[in-house]
Design a binder for these strands. Structure first.
Lengths: 112, 112
DNA sequence: GCCATGTGCAAGTGTCTACTTGCACATTGT
DNA sequence: ACAATGTGCAAGTAGACACTTGCACATGGC
């Protein structure tokens, strides 16, 4: 039953809230793999900033990294995204049903 | 055609990143409607903090409010949630396909 | 060995954010 | 009118965050 998808909801959403981090994800998503230095060339910030962003993304499992010689290569990991998406759909559906019920209740003539 | 889903991605994700805000959303999602004062009774923070959180949620259209006499009543609005969810699913799917292609390429024997 | 390239650690700075307290204003019931 | 309840505005504070600079360490090619 796909246990505990969003115990790190705070960190996941916070990670996605940063535009530069979403840019990094997008670049990795379309190019597959890259190093921090290469990615830094695409953004108007230093390599260190990129490295810190990548660390955040890695801490919430949105990317994974591995050393290859003297460089470290990063790759996207889409599972947290799809997991969060399905969770959002789930609660949205539930709330919608609930609100419809409440609205229906509010429209019944007061019997008390 | 449900225009422009994620031009406010920063603010939307940032709004969802706050645990207290998610609690507020959950409460509103299951109870339908409530005032800031009532909601403050459920959280370990002051009414003002709740009011500020609700303002944030309202600024990204996750809740709507209306005055009724001397109180202001808040309700959830699930569309941004479902919109964000479908967007996340979309990009995740695209990236997955792209990464599969790249992986396939990487596994082809080097012809050069 | 030596130099270039890529990485990692640490500390510093400015800005944003969550939360608080204090008070003034609006509405309802007696 | 008066008190109670609910709201709104404003300023202050502590902590988090994005980003920087500076330097030490590791790896690869000459």
């Amino acid at each position: 039953m796909t246990t505990a998808v969003l115990d790190h909801a705070d960190e996941l959403f916070a990670a996605l809230a940063e535009p530069n981090r979403r840019l990094l994800l997008e670049h990795l998503g379309t190019h597959g793999v890259a190093t921090a230095t290469a990615l830094a060339a695409e953004l108007p910030v230093t390599r260190q900033a990129v490295a810190q962003h990548l660390a955040v993304l890695e801490s919430v499992d949105l990317v994974t990294s591995a050393r290859a010689g003297r460089e470290r290569r990063y790759t996207v990991h889409v599972e947290p995204l799809t997991a969060a998406a399905s969770w959002m759909n789930h609660v949205a559906t539930q709330w919608d049903a609930r609100l419809a019920a409440i609205k229906a209740l509010a429209e019944t003539p007061p019997t008390s």
